[in-house]
């Protein structure tokens, strides 16, 4: 199937074309993003450091992402444990509601929360309301990741701990928790990435809070700032690839710990 292979390579080119351009124009000594290139410079990177607003937006985004990812992972642990370990009335609708944000356009999550916050309670949206909404949309991803972590775990392990005299809490702490740590870490990393990258909710609820995506959106309105976007993008790509590799390494370690073979497949 040679033609299929050629197609696959072309497709990868399509996927990577924009990302390959990032560093090229980030180091290009011209305010206009076009060929031919005019020479190498690091001025756009040093220029980034002067963008006070950007460092502020970055800090806000990371803070929001850290808090959102923590809450989403904790809620995910609860839901995944309930979903994989026990049967209870109305299990499907309850878990369905928790997973619903997965099939809801983000604009719905953003507007519906905004109405409640602004119109019903008369509050000002801000970082806190972005966190509330991010927890909502990240939780389903955490649940999905943690579900598979719990499913890979032999339920007899926890029973064995109980049988050997541990309380439920002790069994969770000494057996279940250490074995699902890799799942918790990758849930956290993925929730963190989603929150960090989320635009619509952050934009609708920004008020006086500017997250990094909202800030980048602002930059794209000014053609002269495009090289800065390129430099920032280069840094972000590098950071996210490092995070991604870390997450994959954790996943594999988890499989190894649980004594399972790697069945391949990311996510």
């Amino acid at each position: 199937m040679r033609s299929l292979r050629v197609y696959a390579v072309l497709y990868l080119l399509f996927l990577y074309a924009p990302i390959v351009l990032l560093p090229i124009f980030a180091f290009n000594d011209s305010a206009v993003i076009s060929f031919p290139l005019s020479g190498a410079t690091t001025q756009w990177f040093t220029g980034l450091a002067d963008e006070r607003e950007m460092t502020g937006a970055l800090r806000t985004s990371i803070l929001i992402a850290l808090i959102s990812a923590s809450f989403a992972t904790v809620l995910g642990i609860f839901a995944a444990m309930a979903g994989t370990r026990s049967d209870f009335p109305a299990k499907r609708p309850i878990l369905g509601l928790i997973m619903l944000p997965l099939v809801l356009p983000e604009v719905i999550v953003a507007t519906s929360l905004l109405i409640v916050i602004v119109q019903v309670f008369g509050l000002d949206p801000g970082a806190w309301s972005i966190i509330v909404a991010h927890v909502l949309i990240c939780t389903p991803f955490s649940v999905a990741i943690l579900n598979s972590a719990f499913q890979n775990l032999d339920p007899a392990l926890e029973e064995a701990a109980l049988d050997l005299g541990e309380s439920r809490r002790g069994a969770f702490r000494r057996v279940t928790l250490p074995l699902i740590v890799p799942g918790i870490v990758s849930s956290f990393l993925i929730a963190f990435t989603i929150s960090l990258d989320e635009f619509i909710i952050a934009f609708f609820m920004s008020g006086n809070t500017t997250t990094l995506p909202v800030y980048i959106y602002g930059l794209t309105r000014f053609p002269g700032k495009m090289p800065l976007v390129m430099a920032l993008g280069t840094l972000l790509v590098a950071a996210s690839i490092i995070l991604l590799i870390a997450a994959e390494a954790m996943r594999r370690r988890g499989l190894r710990r649980a004594g399972l073979k790697d069945t391949g497949g990311f996510l």
Binding site: A156, L157, L162, R257
Partner: peptide, 18 residues
């Protein structure tokens, strides 16, 4: 189960892998 004077050998053995 944790307070009973019984102990169990599980079918899967349930050896803690960590």
């Amino acid at each position: 189960a944790n307070h009973r004077p019984t102990n169990m050998v599980f079918q899967s053995y349930a050896i803690f892998p960590h």
